[in-house]
């Protein structure tokens, strides 16, 4: 629809809406540009507060220092592996839990939901989790980055909501008449119709894996298995909220200056891959293929 052919009310709406969106865009673009530019600026200029939106005293020091630190590349590799495998496990389990819960004729549905939701509020904490991991022999094991977080109840709930709202009962009835089993319906009808929510699940879980560090810090002592976030935290002392800097000698200061140089380049290095994930995922936000024969 061309702008000129819109009604007056619509024109007003479009102008106002686009203006507000533009404003939001500017406001959120600022921190991004600031970080990006700082990563390409001389730390002295950053300290003097001269970097706003564009790099000042262009410098590749940040990236040079970063690439010099070899564990980063190992971290990247590990994170990619954890993310791919982990997300695949996540999405599969989530669908397996969400679909039955979305069916009104699923006996015991209410109980199951409570069973799942209860775990969002009550947990045992770190100590028994440690015991569990230990008893399962998952220390320094690849799967410790996948299994403990294999299912997020929050994701199950939003997926269930989507199934409930978007898979009409009529489809199911029609499929039943054709002798379709539940599993077949799930894989051949429900999933293709739900590409948006599956895409969202992929995104949420993938980001979760990419940003994960806590379990790794606790359970992975082998430096060759560390994910990216842990490696970055290792370099950046500032990212730790601790007042323990005040060692008496050059160490504190040297550490700080290294941290200064690396601060922004590490953020870009860790955030860029994730940021690029979204446009990719967004392609799936189209309604699934309508299986023509089942319509109506």
């Amino acid at each position: 629809m061309r702008f000129g052919s819109l009604s007056k009310g619509d024109k007003v709406y479009t102008v106002v809406s686009n203006t507000l969106l533009f404003f939001l865009l500017l406001v959120t673009l600022y921190p991004l540009l600031n970080v990006l530019s700082s990563s390409f600026s001389d730390p002295k200029a950053i300290g003097a507060g001269r970097v706003a939106i564009f790099p000042v005293d262009f410098s590749l020091d940040g990236y040079r220092e970063l690439s010099r630190y070899t564990p980063i590349w190992v971290g990247y590799k590990n994170s990619i592996m954890y993310t791919i495998v982990g997300t695949f496990v996540n999405v599969t389990l989530t669908i397996m839990a969400a679909y039955p819960l979305s069916r009104k004729d699923f006996r015991g549905r209410g109980l199951f939901i409570v069973f799942f939701a209860f775990t969002m509020y009550f947990s045992g904490g770190m100590i028994p989790s440690y015991m569990l991991i230990r008893n399962l022999n998952l220390f320094n094991n690849f799967w410790v980055m996948v299994l403990p977080g294999a299912l997020s109840v929050y994701n199950v709930i939003i997926t269930r909501t989507y199934f409930q709202s978007n898979i009409p009962d009529s489809f199911l009835e029609a499929a039943r008449l054709d002798g379709c089993t539940d599993v077949k319906f799930l894989t051949q009808v429900a999933i293709p119709l739900s590409t948006p929510i599956i895409a969202v699940n992929f995104l949420f879980y993938a980001v979760g894996h990419w940003n994960a560090f806590f379990d790794a810090m606790l359970y992975l002592s082998d430096t060759k298995m560390k994910p990216l976030q842990v490696v970055l935290r290792d370099i950046l002392i500032e990212s730790r909220i601790s007042a323990d800097f005040n060692f008496d000698s050059k160490y504190a200061e040297a550490k700080q200056s290294i941290a200064e140089i690396l601060k922004y380049s590490t953020i870009v290095a860790s955030t860029l891959p994730v940021m690029l994930m979204y446009p990719f995922v967004q392609k799936y936000f189209i309604k699934g293929i309508m299986l023509g024969g089942l319509k109506g």
Binding site: M126, I127, Y130, M131, R134, L218, R240, S242
Partner: peptide, 13 residues
């Protein structure tokens, strides 16, 4: 920074 936690966990286990 993790040693304290680790020792506690190990003792408990």
């Amino acid at each position: 920074q993790q040693v304290s936690e680790r020792v506690t966990l190990m003792l408990n286990a």
